[in-house]
Design a protein around this nucleic acid. Sequence first.
DNA 1: TTTT
DNA 2: TTTT
Lengths: 169, 169, 169, 169
Amino acid sequence: MARGINKVILIGNLGQDPETRYMPSGGAVTNVTLATSESWKDKNTGQPQERTEWHRVVFFNRLGEIAGEYLKKGSKVYVEGSLRTRKWQGQDGQDRYTTEIVASEMQMLDSRGGSGMGGGMGGGMDDYNQAPPQQQQRRQPQQSAPPQQNQPPQQPAGNFDDFDDDIPF
Amino acid sequence: MARGINKVILIGNLGQDPETRYMPSGGAVTNVTLATSESWKDKNTGQPQERTEWHRVVFFNRLGEIAGEYLKKGSKVYVEGSLRTRKWQGQDGQDRYTTEIVASEMQMLDSRGGSGMGGGMGGGMDDYNQAPPQQQQRRQPQQSAPPQQNQPPQQPAGNFDDFDDDIPF
Amino acid sequence: MARGINKVILIGNLGQDPETRYMPSGGAVTNVTLATSESWKDKNTGQPQERTEWHRVVFFNRLGEIAGEYLKKGSKVYVEGSLRTRKWQGQDGQDRYTTEIVASEMQMLDSRGGSGMGGGMGGGMDDYNQAPPQQQQRRQPQQSAPPQQNQPPQQPAGNFDDFDDDIPF
Amino acid sequence: MARGINKVILIGNLGQDPETRYMPSGGAVTNVTLATSESWKDKNTGQPQERTEWHRVVFFNRLGEIAGEYLKKGSKVYVEGSLRTRKWQGQDGQDRYTTEIVASEMQMLDSRGGSGMGGGMGGGMDDYNQAPPQQQQRRQPQQSAPPQQNQPPQQPAGNFDDFDDDIPF
DNA sequence: TTTT
DNA sequence: TTTT
């Protein structure tokens, strides 16, 4: 049940290969960065401008496995999910916040896929009605260490022992 | 699994009370018409203009029960779903097509709810995964034979024995 | 101004080449059919099933020109728009209804594009804030009569040479 | 023009009254925090759980004025926009990142509005293209120096001279 | 009628 | 047919 709507829709390209890790429960957690960009002409100078926005996307469980297996750097992908802002502690002990998109649906958009998988992973209605009992997002109880983060590209030395470490975006 | 994305998001008001029917399986099917409107000023005359769009929305199973129970004429509601165009035969034997939104999520937006339900009703993963098994036999009072559509302009006589029968918009 | 939300998001492939026509004003009107599909396994037999949904999409003005120029049969495309159900009269004089997606944004998703156009046509906020006086929906010079309407509500009989002819979906 | 899609749809309630500031250009900038929540039953214990997510939303220009004028603490609102992650420097000189939703459309969802405005405020084409030029100088009473963010845990002293300044979430 |  |  939800009070409110929290929905994100992205189409973009992966900045790097996905990184998959596993929760103690065995569930996959795949992190990805996705670029979307806007371009326009400066209204004064007429110069073309571009701005790229980078999004952190995290896929859990089955979606995490699929994302980890079929996506790669440069892949174009459709992602639907919801926003989640996590609080974490910097090395200096201060609170930091990182906002991510927790994916609930993913669909590959390049045909060059090659994987034979070809495509998508739906979360549509038909699934609910006709598919076997859902396994999406089934969290495991026994998880302990915080699960869902990934490793920043340029990771500061000295605390990579933690799965939920303190690097922001 | 999906090839492509087929997603609709609506916020509007019900034109009438919902109509609920039941499939042979016992699953609820609730039909609703939703109004959305646009208003603008005519760019030449400056006259205010308005256009109302009517949408046919259908809710199945658990969502069908909830919609049938909590929505009523005038209710403001958020609906997420997908487009489906059904083919049916007019009395004249000709093919007709009706496009509906098959809801996968619904959320009530008026606080005056009154029902005690308090508001929204998500159709998120959590519901499907963790909610109790669908209570399929809970019947609504207003149900009867009426075809699942609203106001067929020219309603074919005598074949309401079919769940997915042939009434147009 | 809008009362309510009427939003559609599609990713699919064109069933045929687009068809472009022009309004008296000179504005382009491009029609396209888009396929989205769902596949799943039958819950009883385990047989793979597939259902393809066909969507009618219409692009106006500048978007109509771009769609007409860059899309072709088979193109994969992202479309955002709103639902509009048009009433029209069949040859038999009876009312028919056709539901279309009026596109407000389009983005090509296949790299094989080749057109050099590279992609999309956004309607994002940045445009509003930073771009020169809006260029979205840039109407064509030759326009004279008010542009953005199409399809007279009640179509005069006997003019199928007109872009609003009477073939349904 | 956009390469990719960056879209957010939220329905939630304001955590506090909006805060409006003005850019040197006179354009309004209104900041708001929006709560969305999910509730579910723990699948093991059956205990009801709830998680509230807080979103930072920023409205510019005309939308900024409307948001500042009509929204208030507790207001239920529909927001559509795009994600933007801003980089800023903490007091310690370190980089921080804040992710916000830059609204492109807003619609009020409570009827108790009272404002006489009656409700929604679209951001559709028609508005932008046909509405009168933005009335940029209409100032809001509640504006003042307050930084555009809400409740910074550790708010840097003394630099509110900057529009895009450095308060985290 | 598309696509995989 | 709704709503403001």
